[in-house]
């Protein structure tokens, strides 16, 4: 659920992220006409005491509310009795922004229900609004915005945290590389970044320009020049070399795979039947998506046979697999 909370002026709380809604009904059990016992131990003490009191009507304690239980029960009208309920409690928001609202109400059957709503309030911005700006806040919507309702979700708070990404860590300078080399620190000299060719600053894996690596080094990145499909990124498949040396023996063809199925999934599925030599999922070279079929090679023919018997017609990722012997090419 998305909720926007605004508290003005001068601080403006905008937006809240998550809202957990839990309602736990606590039933009041009727023992006799004028006594009620709460099942829940955590309910308010005043009522508990009341139910233990032999003569609640005659001796109302000062802490208790001024009402008579017998009258209530006879009326059977929960709607107007809200004043009987414990008051609404608001706990928080604490340092983590979690706010709890505890509410008591009667449900349709006259049972008292405790509702706890937990909300996380996140402060996104603090703005000072001028008087004119406050007036503008109250302006009615116009144009297409008239029909904006809560579900329209035109405005959403990003789920990911975005940071101002520094080009390099604070305090480090590009010249530092030389200094590190002169220090004679063996570890620092060993630390060579293959991407930016610096020494002693960071490892290749930690390079801030890591994502650029294949663009800058790659002669294919030249804009406009034609790149044959087989040379494009993502075209080379690890399975390319073992295409030749794979044995067609004990090969099982799996079809009607979901697009999300990858080779490790297939391996996991089939290795329960025996030693799997190879699991391969056909990938479309243009789109990089699975073509929906694959092959599994078993070391033993019996294992392959068992796999076919078991998995043909098996429900995998909401699709019915078809598993059969691969036809030799």
């Amino acid at each position: 659920m998305h909720k926007s909370e605004i508290k003005t002026p001068p601080t403006l709380y905008v937006g809240s992220c998550v809202k957990y809604n839990s309602s736990k009904p606590y039933r009041l059990y009727r023992v006799n006409n004028n006594k009620r016992i709460l099942k829940s131990q955590s309910e308010t003490m005043a009522i508990d005491k009341l139910s233990n009191d032999p003569n609640p009507n005659q001796n109302p304690k000062p802490k208790q509310k001024k009402f008579q239980w017998c009258e209530l029960v006879d009326e059977h009208d929960g709607k107007d009795l809200d004043f009987l309920l414990p008051p609404r409690q608001v706990i928080g928001p604490d340092e983590r922004g979690v706010k709890k609202v505890v509410k008591y109400e009667f449900d349709d059957e006259g049972n008292e229900v405790k509702k706890t709503t937990t909300t996380r309030v996140q402060k996104l911005a603090k703005t000072q609004l001028s008087k004119r700006a406050m007036e503008r806040r109250a302006w009615p919507k116009f144009g297409d915005a008239v029909h904006d309702d809560f579900g329209a979700r035109l405005t959403v708070v990003s789920t990911e945290d975005i940071f101002l990404e520094r080009p390099r860590p604070h305090g480090s300078k590009p010249e530092e590389t030389k200094v590190a080399g002169n220090l004679g620190n063996a570890g620092a000299v060993l630390m060579v970044c293959r991407i930016c060719n610096t020494r002693g600053v960071h490892w290749t894996a930690k390079c801030p320009d890591r994502h650029l690596a294949h663009h800058t080094d790659d002669p294919r990145a030249n804009e406009g020049a034609y790149v044959p499909p087989s040379m494009r990124r993502g075209a080379e498949r690890p399975g390319g070399s073992d295409m030749r040396r794979r044995s067609d023996e004990n090969s099982v063809r799996v079809t009607n795979l979901s697009e999300d199925t990858i080779e490790p999934d297939l391996l996991e599925l089939f290795q329960t039947f025996g030693h799997v030599i190879r699991a391969y999922v056909a990938i479309d070279q243009k789109t990089g998506m699975s073509r929906g079929f694959g092959f599994v090679n078993f070391a033993n023919r019996e294992d392959a046979e068992r796999a076919i018997n078991k998995l043909n017609g098996y429900d995998y990722d909401n699709l019915i697999l078809r598993v059969e012997w691969a036809t030799p090419r």
Partner: peptide, 30 residues
Amino acid sequence: RDGDLLFSCAKDHNPTVWFADNGERLGTYR
């Protein structure tokens, strides 16, 4: 000038005004 409204123009035909603090849409100019 007060920084409470944000006007946006796009290649669709409706300039839009938003509240600049919480991003709520105030209206469009049709």
